[in-house]
Computed example of a mutant assay.
Amino acid sequence: MKKTYLLNVEGKNRDRLLDAAKHDIRKYVKRERARPLPAEVDFFDFNCRLGSSQETAVEVHFAALFTAIDTLTKDGASQFYAEVVTSHGQRTAKPYDASRDAQAQADADYQDN
């Protein structure tokens, strides 16, 4: 989804337009996550870009997207560009940490005494 949202429209409340834009993004994400996953994919990830225009958009993590929208529009911007593109995510195993196993064993020994 690549879209420019206008926030200063004649006869419409700016805050409602901002809420409608956020709702539109959430609706897109929900629809994408509802699709069946391909066999080699663990989850759907989202690559996001945000800016006042398409040319000035910078990459933003999905978890920080709505906070970034609030920050961008707080100054009274008349529009913002949001790009949310679905990508395939693969889970990776955490690296083995021997010190964590030693700490767990020490905790178990302490509880036994």
Rank of each mutant, 00 (worst) to 15 (best):
R91K: 12
F80M: 04
V84H: 03
Y5D: 10
D45M: 11
S87A: 14
A57H: 07
T71E: 15
Q54H: 13
L65Y: 02
N8Q: 12
D97H: 08
N13Y: 08
D70P: 04
K94S: 10
G51V: 00
L7R: 04
E59I: 05
D112I: 09
T67R: 15
A63T: 13
A21Q: 01
T73L: 03
Y81D: 04
T67S: 15
T71M: 11
T56E: 12
A21D: 00
G76W: 06
A21M: 04
D75V: 13
A93V: 06
I69Y: 02
K3Q: 14
E32T: 05
Y28R: 00
A98I: 08
Q103W: 10
K94R: 14
V84S: 02
S87Y: 07
D42E: 05
E55C: 02
D101L: 12
D19E: 14
H88C: 09
A104H: 09
Q105P: 03
A39R: 13
K12E: 15
T92P: 00
Y5T: 09
A104P: 06
D70L: 10
A63F: 08
D101W: 02
E55P: 07
Y28H: 08
F80E: 02
V41T: 15
N47R: 13
R14P: 12
V60E: 11
E59P: 05
G89I: 04
F43A: 12
R49V: 05
G11W: 04
E55F: 08
Y110S: 12
V9P: 07
F62A: 06
L7G: 02
V29N: 01
F43Y: 15
D97N: 15
F46R: 10
Y28F: 15
L72M: 11
F46T: 10
P38V: 03
E10G: 00
K74W: 06
L17M: 09
A68Q: 15
R35H: 07
L7C: 04
A68K: 15
H61R: 13
D15F: 01
A63G: 10
L50K: 05
V84L: 06
A34M: 11
V84T: 03
V41M: 04
L6A: 14
Q79L: 05
R33T: 09
K12T: 11
A106E: 14
L7T: 05
A98G: 01
V85E: 14
F44G: 00
V58L: 13
D101K: 11
A82K: 03
A102V: 11
H23G: 10
R91A: 11
A68I: 00
A102I: 12
K22W: 02
A21G: 01
H23F: 11
L37C: 05
V9H: 07
T92A: 09
H61V: 09
D70W: 05
D109P: 03
D15M: 05
C48T: 06
Y28P: 05
A93L: 09
F80R: 02
K94G: 04
G89A: 08
P95K: 09
K2D: 15
D97R: 12
D15P: 04
A93W: 02
V85M: 13
N8C: 07
L6V: 08
A39T: 12
D107E: 15
I25A: 02
I69M: 10
D42K: 00
C48S: 02
N47F: 12
D15G: 01
L18I: 12
